[in-house]
Structures are given as structure tokens and as C-alpha cells.
């Protein structure tokens, strides 16, 4: 039985950081199977987690100094929450790992502790029916596990409540940036070239900066300012940030471009930020699919209309 070290070294932190940025994601896997922290016996608890390096590192360090079993499921390097949604952290995989690890020989009891966020993938009654193991959805955060274990395995209301703090949103920002990277580089380069061709390098530079700022408004400012932005729609929240940036840009760089071009730019920046903000719904833990669908049905046509309007205003400014 492999013994797990519970100290997270610097390399692990670097690994976590690299995984966030999508660098070498596949090399951050922990092989699935049964692991021991400390020297667990046949009565010690079994905690189930994903083979996503960060999920598993957090569990490992939270349980430092204890004797517990950790059953790692094969989720292909994806975290518990996403894997449960995709079905890889699922009933069949759990049952398969229980068998493959000969868990019934390692422990006498028949209780498994699972993260609450695994529930979308795990049908607890199915697992019990097919293996005899009772599934106990313990906590949302692995960091609450010590308190949960010390409390006689009672889940408090706080352990069951999902949070979405500033810090939690901050660590998602890199993911948003990586997702937006390719089209952003392309469009920025294009704007720079078009601006330079029509005018001069300085114009190309300010055009590219305007766009980059709008992307940042949607991918960085909107997630961070989320609870303080007006409305419940992400498209509206993003539009607010985009318009704010547009006004800043006009004040700083838009000095003599005239009213039509200025209005067009403001519209375009609002639409760009709104689009990226809408994308952030995929990373939040409280947006329903039906809600996103409804929002998109209204927001996408509105964004396209806004961009068409912006283009007409620019053409007006350029040729009339």
C-alpha cells in the first residue's frame, strides 16, 4: 500500500499553479487506487477523492497526522466537481475501485466518506445495493474533514454550504484567461494591423489596447467584482464592466476620434466584455443550465446587434 506524504512541497504548489494555467495537465495525475495516510487499520475511515492532483493534495494535507485510507478514483485528472458532472467520478467507477482495491479486505466497516460535490455523479443507494458500502457525503471542502472526523462524522450546515469568495474567484481568473487566449491574441493582432493600416502605429496600439481592456473587463474584473455588479444576469454584469472600461478608454485615448467612432467603440467594448462575462457562468457554482440558456437566447442576439451597430458607427465616422 503506497504511503502518502502529507506535506505539500514547493513543487506541489508549482504543480497546482501549472495545472491552473493548463500547462502539462496530464502529468498532474495521481494513479487511482487505495492509499494510506499514517498507518490506518481496519476500523479507520475511508475517504474517496479524485485523481486530480489538487483535489488529492488538499485532502492529503488536510489529513496530516491522522490514520485514514484514501480511495482515489480515476477521473483523468479532473477535479471532483467537474468529474461528477461529467460522470467520471461516478457510481460505476466507485464500485470498480472498491473491487479493484480489495477494500473489503482492508477495512471491517462498510462506510465511505465522499465529498458532497461528488453527489451529482454518485447514486449512493446504488453503491450500497451493489457493494454493501454506505455512502456518507461528508463535507464540501476537504479542509473541513478534520473537524468532521473529530465531530463524530457530523456534517454541520456550514460544511454543506458552498462558498464563492473573492479568493475562490481569483484562482479561477487564470482559467478564464487561458480559455480566452487564442482568439484574443488573434483579434488583438488584427486590430493592431488594421489600426496601423488606416492610420499609424499609435492608432493600431490604442485599438488593440481597447480590445484587450474589454477582454480583461469580462475575464478579470467581472469575476472579481461579481457580487457588487448590478443585476443577476452575467451578460449585464459584464456589459457594465465593459462600458466602464470603454469610458476610461475614451477619457485616456479617445481624445479626438469624434462622437460616432467613440460611441461605436463604447458599444463594441461593452459587447466584448459581456460575452466573456457570460462565459464565466461555466466556472461558477451557482448558475443553472436553464438560466444560462435563457440568458444566451437574449444576450447573443443583443451582442451581435451591438457589434453591427458599432461597425455602422465606425463606417459613418470613416466615410461621412
Amino acid at each position: 500500500m503506497p504511503l502518502l506524504s502529507t506535506q505539500l512541497g514547493c513543487r506541489d504548489r508549482l504543480g497546482a499553479w501549472k495545472a491552473r494555467w493548463g500547462i502539462g495537465r496530464m502529468s498532474y495525475l495521481t494513479p487511482p487506487g487505495l492509499y494510506a495516510i499514517g498507518s490506518p487499520g481496519s476500523d479507520d475511515p475511508v475517504i474517496v477523492t479524485a485523481n486530480y492532483k489538487m483535489s488529492y493534495d488538499i485532502v492529503r494535507s488536510a489529513l496530516h497526522g491522522r490514520n485514514v485510507w484514501i480511495l482515489v478514483l480515476e477521473t483523468f485528472g479532473i477535479n471532483v466537481w467537474c468529474a461528477a458532472g461529467k460522470g467520471t467520478f461516478g457510481t460505476d467507477e466507485l464500485i470498480h475501485r472498491i473491487d479493484a482495491a480489495h477494500l473489503t479486505q482492508a477495512v471491517n466497516h462498510r462506510t465511505l466518506l465522499l465529498p458532497i460535490l461528488a453527489a451529482p455523479g454518485i447514486a449512493a443507494h446504488e453503491v450500497t445495493r451493489r457493494t454493501g458500502f454506505r455512502v456518507h457525503f461528508a463535507t464540501i471542502q476537504a479542509t473541513d474533514l478534520p473537524e468532521f472526523l473529530d465531530n463524530g462524522m457530523v456534517t454541520t450546515a456550514a460544511m454543506r454550504e458552498l462558498t464563492f469568495t473573492f479568493r475562490e474567484r481569483l484562482v479561477l481568473v487564470p482559467v478564464e484567461i487561458v480559455l480566452a487566449l487564442k482568439p484574443t491574441i488573434f483579434i488583438t493582432a488584427l486590430l493592431f494591423l488594421v489600426g496601423t493600416a488606416f492610420n499609424e502605429a499609435a492608432a493600431g496600439f490604442t485599438a488593440a489596447a481597447a480590445f484587450l481592456g474589454a477582454v480583461a473587463a469580462g475575464t478579470i474584473a467581472t469575476p472579481l467584482l461579481l457580487p457588487w455588479l448590478p443585476g443577476s444576469s452575467f451578460a449585464v454584469k459584464g456589459a457594465t464592466c465593459g462600458m466602464g472600461w470603454g469610458l476610461v478608454w475614451l477619457a485616456l485615448a479617445g481624445g479626438d476620434i469624434g462622437v460616432p467612432a467613440g460611441a461605436g467603440t463604447l458599444l463594441a467594448l461593452t459587447a466584448v466584455s459581456s460575452f466573456y462575462a457570460l462565459n464565466f457562468t461555466g466556472s461558477t457554482p451557482f448558475t443553472s443550465r436553464s438560466g444560462v440558456k435563457k440568458e444566451m437566447r437574449i444576450a447573443l442576439p443583443a451582442m451581435i446587434a451591438t457589434l453591427v451597430g458599432a461597425t455602422l458607427l465606425w463606417l459613418w465616422a470613416a466615410f461621412l
Binding site: 453527489a119 462565459n279 457562468t281 443553472s288 444560462v292 444566451m296
Partner: peptide, 27 residues
């Protein structure tokens, strides 16, 4: 948020929900 955890874990199937990730790009 339509995660589907409740319907998946209701042994008598008393809950229904169209579960899925609310992700704009995916849609």
C-alpha cells in the same frame, strides 16, 4: 443550479431536474 445531485440520489425517483453544466461555450 441544476447539478442533479438530488435526483441522482433519490432512491424512489421523486425528483426530476434537467441536469447539466451551465456553460455558455458548451451551449
Amino acid at each position: 443550479m441544476e447539478c442533479g445531485a438530488c435526483s441522482k440520489n433519490c432512491a424512489v425517483a421523486a425528483i426530476t431536474v434537467a441536469a447539466g453544466v451551465g456553460c455558455a461555450l458548451g451551449m
